[in-house]
Computed example of a mutant assay.
Amino acid sequence: MLARLSPLPAAERVAAAYDEAGRICDEDAAQNEAIGRHGLRLIQEIAARRGADGVVNILTHCNAGWIATVDWGTALAPIYMAHDAGLKVHVWVDETRPRNQGASLTAWELGSHGVPHTVVADNAGGHLMQHGMVDMVIVGTDRVTRSGDVANKIGTYLKALAAHDNDVPFWVALPSTTIDWRVQDGLAEIPIEERGGAEVTAITGRTADGRIETVQLTPPGSGAANPAFDVTPARLVTGLITERGCCDASRDGLAGLFPEQA
């Protein structure tokens, strides 16, 4: 925006800003549609092994759909495309405590699109994987290092550990703008936001008569820690789904898709 608006006279900047915003939206939608196409092939491969009557069960964490981006989403784009293509998909939706983005946003999105889904407690993912009830995990990400480490909503790392232990593919969907080419080691170099403890000690929801209320969950005087994100090391990531295709979560993998950046 600064590059576009700075050279212009003040009287021309508003119109130019709207024009640039529209271009950014169109670019984002195109990137996410491409992510969806590349991720769709992964779901199709599982569906082919499942057969005509099989259901592909996908677990996701937090919200990485069209509420978070434009039109498609990142992690949800392949799921929407698979559903629209007639594949039988079912999504396990982590509640994503403490802000409950999965239970409120992702579940609402999937329901609006007609995608079969089930909301589960955050701690249920490992159990589902142990019992063969998850075929793949797809999550979004807020930041990816040039070596393939992934920073995403708190709890993502635990899902990756469970997936690794149970041989469940763990994929991360992202536009290339999410890659921070300046950062090598996610654990050492990505700062983690610590949010207010009230998000953990209280919860807001709808009562039976439709009112929105906030209630206390913890005893008075109990403290709360609230790290908002965690870092999943590249070794636990099956691969990255980008607008240019899929690649290993590694420096070489990313360099193969984005040689001009590497």
Rank of each mutant, 00 (worst) to 15 (best):
V56M: 05
G205A: 08
A255D: 10
N57A: 14
P98V: 00
I190T: 12
K153M: 00
L257E: 09
P7T: 03
I79W: 01
A34C: 06
G155K: 00
V231P: 10
A77S: 10
I58N: 01
G73F: 00
L240N: 11
A151Q: 02
D252Q: 13
N226E: 00
A17L: 14
S250M: 11
R99V: 07
Q261F: 15
C246S: 14
G22E: 09
P233I: 07
T74G: 00
L161C: 13
P169F: 10
I212Y: 08
A77L: 02
V56G: 04
D28N: 07
I43C: 06
V93W: 00
G54N: 04
C62S: 03
W66K: 14
T204F: 07
A228R: 05
T60N: 07
S6P: 04
L161Y: 10
L5M: 05
Q261W: 13
M129W: 11
H90L: 05
G54Q: 05
A160W: 08
A82L: 06
L105Y: 00
I46T: 11
I203N: 06
N152L: 03
E260Q: 15
A173Y: 03
T204I: 04
V119N: 08
A75C: 04
R244S: 13
G39F: 00
G186M: 01
N123C: 14
G126H: 09
E213C: 09
A173W: 01
A163C: 08
T177V: 13
